[in-house]
Amino acid sequence: MSDWNAQQYDSFATLRQQAAHDLLAAVPAESIEAISDLGCGSGISTALLAQRWPDAAIIGVDQSPDMLATAATRVPSARFLQGDIADFSAPESQDLIFANASLHWLADHRQLFPALVNQLRPGGMLAVQMPNTLPEASHRLMGEVASRADFAQHLGEMNTHRETLLNPNEYYDCLTPNCAAVTIWETHYYHVLDGPSDILRWFSSTALKPYLDMLPAHKREDFSHQYLSELIRVYPPQADGKVLLRLPRLFIVAFRSAS
């Protein structure tokens, strides 16, 4: 997959920050010395962590050089590493592992989540937010357009690199053997955007990107145009001409057992 575009991603930075704010608000304000920000992207979440715990040693991990370059400028006090968060191994036991909108790209959550908890110190915290958007119209329409003859020959039975999330009961059961407390909730955000073209721009730097990367260059604009046409049909304007983009997000905060 080609590199991510930090400038494009950050064009909705204020709206994207909201879920990170809400996740951080559920983390107790206790002494924190070592933090890992997994899938830190352009450093939006890293900046919030640095503001909350200015003396903590923060490591941000991401695969994208462009995202990391922006993150390093945004949070010069943090240390940033390029790498696959699926292979992340903390250099020492962490007080907080924070993963805002990143773990949904990884497979086998029944193994992943306990493995992350094992990298926490006793009493340490795992704080996770994941978009639960695969059933949403915005994502179903991507698949529908991809199945059309012009694109299916290139995309086939494409894996968009997104995992279907476990249900809350399953996350609870895989975390509780090593956790003293687990809190799980879901929030449905309704982002106010100027129109369907903004929905296209929103996902062009995230969920739509794997489709566009798989297509020949001369097919990408046509794919985006057809996807936009479907968005216009499904997301009618509100009374003021704006559109509402619904994004469900699943939150998990788990505390490793003290012994």
Rank of each mutant, 00 (worst) to 15 (best):
S42W: 07
S42Q: 10
S42E: 07
G43W: 00
G43C: 01
G43R: 03
G43T: 04
I44K: 11
S45P: 09
S45F: 05
T46E: 00
A47S: 12
A47M: 04
A47T: 00
L48K: 10
L48F: 12
L48H: 13
L48G: 04
L48P: 09
L49K: 13
L49R: 10
L49D: 07
L49M: 12
L49V: 07
L49Q: 08
A50Q: 15
A50Y: 05
Q51H: 15
R52E: 12
R52N: 10
R52P: 10
R52D: 08
W53Q: 02
W53F: 15
P54N: 10
D55S: 15
D55C: 07
D55L: 15
D55W: 12
A56L: 08
A56D: 12
A56Y: 13
A56M: 14
A57W: 11
A57E: 15
I58K: 06
I58Y: 09
I59D: 11
I59A: 09
I59E: 14
G60C: 05
G60E: 05
V61C: 14
D62W: 00
D62C: 00
D62G: 02
D62N: 09
D62F: 01
D62R: 01
Q63R: 15
Q63F: 10
S64Y: 10
S64H: 14
S64K: 09
S64Q: 11
P65D: 15
P65K: 11
P65Q: 13
D66A: 14
M67W: 12
M67E: 08
M67G: 09
M67D: 08
L68N: 10
L68P: 09
L68W: 08
L68A: 09
A69H: 12
A69C: 11
T70V: 11
T70Y: 13
A71Q: 06
A71L: 02
A71S: 07
A71T: 00
A71V: 00
A71I: 03
A72L: 05
A72K: 15
T73W: 00
T73Y: 02
T73H: 13
T73V: 14
T73P: 03
T73C: 11
R74E: 00
R74Y: 07
R74I: 00
R74P: 03
V75T: 14
V75M: 00
V75Q: 05
P76I: 04
P76M: 04
P76G: 03
P76C: 07
A78L: 05
A78D: 07
A78R: 05
A78C: 08
F80T: 02
F80P: 01
F80V: 00
F80C: 02
F80S: 00
L81N: 08
L81I: 13
Q82C: 05
Q82H: 01
Q82V: 05
Q82Y: 06
G83A: 04
G83D: 02
G83S: 00
G83H: 09
G83V: 03
D84M: 04
D84T: 08
D84Q: 10
I85G: 02
I85F: 04
I85Y: 08
A86W: 05
A86G: 13
D87S: 07
D87R: 13
D87C: 03
D87E: 12
F88M: 02
S89E: 12
S89I: 07
S89M: 04
